[in-house]
C-alpha cells in the first residue's frame, strides 16, 4: 500500500518583516515533526525548492500594500485549499498601516530619493480585506505554540484551541498580579486577544496589544480608565496606533482621541 500523500504546505510573504515565518523555523524540536507531517512545498525562507500548486495549507504572512500584492493574494487563494493569515500584518495591516491615517504621497516624497520608482497602494490592509480566509493567527510575531496547535488541529481534523478572549484570562490562569490594578500601569490586556503566553504582564509591563482586538472589545471604557490613570489624549491615541492600528476597533478608538 503506498504511503498516504502528505498535505502540501506553502508559506507566503507579503509586506512584513519575516518574523512570523521565523516562528515556524524557531519550532526547532517540532520542526522535524512538521516536516514529517507535511510536504513543505513553498517556503523561501527555509528552502529554495519550489513545488507547484495547488496547496493544501497556505500560511500567509504580511499585509497587502502594493498593486502586485493585491493581485498575487488572489492567485494564492485560488491555489490554496486552506488559507491561514498569520501575524499582525496579515490579520490587521501591520505597523505599516500607520500610513493609512495620512497621505501616502507625502511619505513617498519625504523618504525616497526617486519617488517615481515607488509603486504602492494608499493603504496597508489585512489579507482578509482582499480574499476569504479560513483561519487567522494573531500576534507580532505569532506564537509558535499557537502555530503548532493550528497545524496539529488541521492535520488531525479537529478545532484549533486558539481562544479569542482577553489577555487578562492568561494573567489569571498564570496567577500574574494585574499590573494595572496593583501598579497603575496602563495595560491593553482587557481589549487584547490572548495568545502571547502572557509575556509583558509577567514582567510587570502593560500589554501592548500585539495580538490585536479581542472578541467584543470595549475600547471606549478602557480609554476612559487610562485617562483616569493620567494618560493624555495623545498617549491614548498612540497606544492604539501600533502593530494592529488598522484593526477596526483600534482604528476607531485611536481616531476618537485624535484631536491634532
Amino acid at each position: 500500500m503506498p504511503a498516504p500523500k502528505k498535505p502540501k504546505l506553502a508559506v507566503w510573504k507579503f509586506s512584513s518583516c519575516d518574523g512570523c515565518q521565523l516562528q515556524l523555523l524557531c519550532c526547532e524540536d517540532e520542526l522535524l515533526q512538521v516536516a514529517d507531517a507535511v510536504e513543505i512545498a513553498y517556503f523561501l525562507e527555509a528552502t529554495r525548492a519550489q513545488v507547484r500548486g495547488p496547496y493544501d495549507i497556505s500560511l500567509v504572512e504580511g499585509s497587502v500594500s502594493t498593486p502586485e500584492e493585491a493581485e498575487r493574494i488572489r492567485k494564492i487563494r485560488r491555489q490554496s485549499k486552506i488559507l491561514i493569515s498569520i501575524g499582525a500584518c496579515a490579520t490587521a495591516g501591520g505597523i505599516q498601516a500607520l500610513r493609512n491615517f495620512k497621505d501616502v504621497d507625502g511619505f513617498i516624497n519625504a523618504v525616497y530619493a526617486h519617488p517615481e520608482y515607488i509603486e504602492t497602494l494608499a493603504t496597508s490592509t489585512a489579507i482578509r480585506d482582499h480574499v476569504d480566509i479560513d483561519f487567522e493567527l494573531r500576534g507580532c510575531p505569532i506564537d509558535k505554540g499557537q502555530l503548532l496547535e493550528a497545524l496539529s488541529a488541521l492535520l488531525n481534523g479537529r478545532r484549533p484551541n486558539v481562544p479569542t478572549h482577553s489577555q487578562c484570562v492568561e494573567c489569571k490562569l498564570m496567577g500574574t498580579v494585574c499590573v494595572m490594578v496593583a501598579h497603575g500601569t496602563p495595560c491593553m490586556g482587557p481589549v487584547t486577544q490572548a495568545g502571547c503566553g502572557n509575556l509583558c504582564p509577567s514582567f510587570n509591563r502593560g500589554c501592548y496589544n500585539c495580538f490585536g482586538p479581542k472578541e467584543t472589545p470595549n475600547t471606549a471604557s478602557l480609554s476612559a480608565w487610562f485617562a483616569k490613570l493620567g494618560m493624555d489624549q495623545r498617549s491614548i491615541k498612540h497606544f492604539y496606533r501600533s502593530f494592529n492600528t488598522n484593526a477596526p476597533a483600534f482604528r476607531r478608538e485611536s481616531e476618537a482621541h485624535d484631536k491634532t
Binding site: C168, V169, G189, P190, T216, N218, A220, S221
Partner: peptide, 13 residues
C-alpha cells in the same frame, strides 16, 4: 455594559 470590558477578571478572581 457601557463600562464592562468583558475581560473576565471578576470571575477568575
Amino acid at each position: 455594559a457601557k463600562r464592562c470590558l468583558t475581560c473576565a477578571n471578576c470571575t477568575l478572581v
